[in-house]
C-alpha cells in the first residue's frame, strides 16, 4: 500500500433517538476516504446529515454501523481518542460557543494543556498559531469584544496550535459576515497550500469552488461526488436537493446555450472574463483574416 488514506469512512450509518419508540435515521451506509493534503467540501441542506457526518470524523460521535478510521485508528477505540482528536481538529459553527477561556492566549493554551504539551513549548506554539490566523495583536485581549470572524480565527488558532494533520470546519463560516467569511476562507486556502488536509462542511456554494472534491449529502446518503466543476454542471439536480449554484455558473450555462463554444463550466468571475476574452479574441482574428 503506497498511500494509506488519512481518513476512511466505511459503510457508516447513524440515527438519533427521538424518544423511546422513534428513531431518526440521519446517515445510511456512507463511505468515502480522504487523502492527506486533500481539500474536501461536504455540502447539503440543513437536516441532510452533513453535520452528523462531520462529528463522526473525530470520534465525537461513534458510528452505529460501519467504522471510521483516522490514520488507521478506529474512532470506536476510546483508548486512542486523544491521538485521533489531535490528528483531526474541529472548528464549529458558533464562534461564541467554543471559546473556553477569558483571554485569547489562554484559550489557545487550553488544547495544549489537554494534550500535555510542556510549558516551554507552549509559548512558541501559541505565537505560531496566532500568526497563522493573523490575530497576533489580540493575544492578551478578552474574546468577547472580538467580532464573529475574529473569534472564529481564534478558534482555528486553538486547533492549529495542537498541530493536527486535518482540519474539519463544521459550518464555521455560516454565522459570519462577508468580511469574516473571506478572512476565514483565506486562512483555509493558505493552510491547504502548506499541506494541511481540509474538510469543510457548508451550504454556501461559493465556498466549495476551491475544494479538490465535493461530496453532496442528501437524506443521509452521498448524492454526488466530483470536482466543483463537475458538480456545478448538474444544476438541476442540485436545485432538486435545495442547493444553490454560484451565479457565475448560471451565467456560463445561459451563455453556453446561446453560444455553444462558451465553456459551460466557468464558475467564477475570472473564468467568465477569460472566456469572453478568448471568444472575442478569436472573433477579432477571424475578421482580420
Amino acid at each position: 500500500m503506497a498511500n494509506e488514506p488519512l481518513l476512511q469512512v466505511e459503510d457508516v450509518s447513524y440515527s438519533y433517538k427521538i424518544n423511546s419508540k422513534e428513531t431518526l435515521q440521519v446517515l445510511t451506509d456512507v463511505s468515502f476516504s480522504v487523502q492527506k493534503g486533500e481539500y474536501v467540501a461536504i455540502i447539503g441542506h440543513n437536516g441532510s446529515g452533513k453535520s452528523t457526518l462531520s462529528k463522526l470524523l473525530n470520534g465525537i460521535l461513534v458510528p452505529e454501523k460501519g467504522q471510521v478510521r483516522v490514520k488507521n485508528l478506529l474512532t470506536s477505540d476510546r483508548t486512542q481518542i486523544k491521538e485521533i482528536r489531535r490528528t483531526v481538529g474541529m472548528v464549529f459553527q458558533h464562534p461564541d460557543n467554543q471559546i473556553v477561556a477569558t483571554i485569547v492566549e489562554d484559550d489557545i493554551a487550553f488544547g495544549l494543556e489537554n494534550i500535555g504539551v510542556p510549558h516551554d513549548e507552549m509559548d512558541a506554539r501559541i505565537t505560531g498559531a496566532l500568526e497563522a490566523v493573523g490575530m497576533s495583536e489580540y493575544r492578551y485581549r478578552p474574546p468577547h469584544h472580538l467580532s464573529g470572524g475574529q473569534k472564529q480565527r481564534v478558534a482555528i488558532a486553538g486547533i492549529l496550535a495542537m498541530q493536527p494533520e486535518c482540519l474539519v470546519l463544521d459550518e464555521a463560516t455560516s454565522m459570519l459576515d462577508s468580511y469574516g467569511r473571506d478572512d476565514v476562507l483565506a486562512i483555509m486556502r493558505k493552510l491547504h497550500e502548506n499541506g494541511m488536509t481540509i474538510i469543510t462542511v457548508t451550504h454556501h456554494m461559493n465556498e466549495v469552488i476551491e475544494a479538490d472534491r465535493v461530496i453532496v449529502i442528501a437524506e443521509g446518503k452521498i448524492a454526488m461526488v466530483g470536482s466543483p466543476r463537475e458538480i456545478f454542471m448538474r444544476q438541476q439536480e442540485l436545485e432538486s436537493l435545495h442547493l444553490d449554484v454560484p451565479d457565475c455558473s448560471r451565467i456560463a450555462k445561459v451563455l453556453h446555450q446561446e453560444v455553444s463554444s462558451f465553456n459551460a463550466t466557468a464558475m467564477n468571475p475570472e473564468e467568465i472574463v477569460s472566456e469572453v476574452k478568448r471568444l472575442t479574441h478569436v472573433n477579432q482574428e477571424e475578421s482580420k483574416s
Partner: peptide, 15 residues
Amino acid sequence: RVEDASTEIRKLLPE
C-alpha cells in the same frame, strides 16, 4: 440580476 448580466455579456460575444 443573473438574466440581465447574461444578456449583457451575450452582447459581447460573436454570433
